[in-house]
Design a protein around this nucleic acid. Sequence first.
DNA 1: CGGGTATTCCAAAGCGCTTTAGTTCGTTGA
DNA 2: TCAACGAACTAAAGCGCTTTGGAATACCCG
Lengths: 343, 343
Amino acid sequence: MNLKELSSILGLSQTTVSRALNGYPEVSEETRDRVQRAADRHNYRPNTRAKGLATGRAMAIGHVIPVSPRIDMVNNPIFGDFIAGAGEAYSKAGYDMVLTVVEDDREADAYRQIKSRGTVDGVVVHGPRTHDSRITLLNDLQIPFVVHGRSSGIDEPYCWVDVNNRRAFSRATDFLLDLGHTRIALINGLEFMDFAIRRRAGYEASLIARGLPVDPELLRSNVMTELYGYRDARALLALDRPPTAFLVASMICAIGVRRAIQDCGIRLGRDVSVVTYDDMLSYLPNGDDVPIFTASRSSVRVAGRLSGELLLERIANPDAPCRGELLEAELMVGQSTGPAPAS
Amino acid sequence: MNLKELSSILGLSQTTVSRALNGYPEVSEETRDRVQRAADRHNYRPNTRAKGLATGRAMAIGHVIPVSPRIDMVNNPIFGDFIAGAGEAYSKAGYDMVLTVVEDDREADAYRQIKSRGTVDGVVVHGPRTHDSRITLLNDLQIPFVVHGRSSGIDEPYCWVDVNNRRAFSRATDFLLDLGHTRIALINGLEFMDFAIRRRAGYEASLIARGLPVDPELLRSNVMTELYGYRDARALLALDRPPTAFLVASMICAIGVRRAIQDCGIRLGRDVSVVTYDDMLSYLPNGDDVPIFTASRSSVRVAGRLSGELLLERIANPDAPCRGELLEAELMVGQSTGPAPAS
DNA sequence: CGGGTATTCCAAAGCGCTTTAGTTCGTTGA
DNA sequence: TCAACGAACTAAAGCGCTTTGGAATACCCG
């Protein structure tokens, strides 16, 4: 069923039918009703491609997902929840979501293609690094975009949605310091990722504010898998002066840390404390009433929704100044922390 | 840069330029070269929508992701890896991937929309249940599709890619029985999901084959989160006659089971054995050389790639008979299993 | 009653591509 | 020498929609 057929059934021109369905005023309410009912009855929906061709808008948002051995965004456990949040925003506004999985060295080319092929009206940038070249590229290409996170070292304006990682980790560090811990390890994500840099900065700032040294021995940076959480924690616990507390980059990682602690025969929350970051993944809830881990938490799904909404707003209004949205993580005290053991 | 501009630069007709770029024989090799070079130089890429309109093909594959409080596919931790695999197949063939996040009671409508709006050439169906109505619907709508999994109780033919869940769980049960376990708990996924049914069938078949009863007390069925893994295991361990072994539906779930076991003060692999199912998620590797958990494993990423390839094949050749692809999981013995303790 | 003004509708152009149905021209065979 | 043919190219229709620039009708006012 297409517009031509529908309008001939109704005995109206395509113009009128199109206008009736798109809410233009040049058509009587009576006709509009009649058209609307006929459209429903015949299950008519305008062809996306034709509509896009005619309007110049794709009604779709792109997410370019770089994959590589080095860093694999789609493998990131937060991806599903972020997409769910963004998808919510899109479907409410009648937009589709287009994913492009691409080798990470061809990511720039993917954005150029997007521009020239016109498949989407805007893109969301995932996993920004410091000095992220994608931001400059997208600004040059004039593709509307929103970054999930920020990129230190980029001066030009851009829209973003981010968690206050620095403050979250500074707060968490303060919390552990207040419990009397002085040797606090940081099991961080890869430190070319912007969020990891900010987290480390927050951690260091809190230590320095109390006149404590930043011991490089206690800093680890790795992909955030269970396995690396385990390994890093094992290595840290084997030190001559092991840490009494851990600051961990993600729940998955923290699970590895927990395993390491148990393998060492010591007890979580008593012998050693752990504060983690919790993205509130739906399949990995941090306990129900009482959190298992003490954690800074902020819903990545909400971040996805906000990113989607911000991007749609930007597309509708490309000349408005760039906006950023800073979410605050909330510190939930759970069972994985306690006072520093007397040494 | 569009076809019209490019052809006027070249002093050729749009027809010739289009044919040159699409490899048609009615154009001399010399001209083809000239056109190709000009296209490269001017960074020309045909507009997807226009091409789609003209050819009737969207060059895109759809994934409809139902979300609801009840069951949330996108929340499923395997989603990211599956998508990565499928995306690989698509990008190799020049296809885009379109995700539609939709309330699960409007899923049927989403498929109808896909059909009438013509946004994609085919779809992948996620998380099939028994007697899944989507299969009939998609066959009726004549949308090419591939199911990730199967649906018991559906007679009509359809394409699918699935793991032999029944055999995987039967093998795992046999393995535990061989170790002398007789009280084996099954912590299963939700049993309206087809894969969960098959897993249970495999488990039951192995018990019955050795003349052992299926004790309903030992059967749990829930969403596969860490939390429910924990709860179910706690409840099972608190029974008068607790199980000596657990068969668990996923790594995430098994992590909860491990926590429960540790909370009870008993030791995994000695006092109690666990065999899990491992989708080989990239952020949750099951150890490196020695697996942490004994597990039936099969890569969901590979399943994604195969699903994508099968669907593209079907689109290219819609009249070929439907094919199914059955993957076998492999049993990796890790540290979480041992002989049944003498009782 | 004529002219201006809404109101409601329509014909046709145009979006950027593919593809059908030619056209042109040089070559070949009888 | 001329018809037939193939190679290489082109003009134009068409994909399904939106939107511009009218046209037709009804309405109001002086």
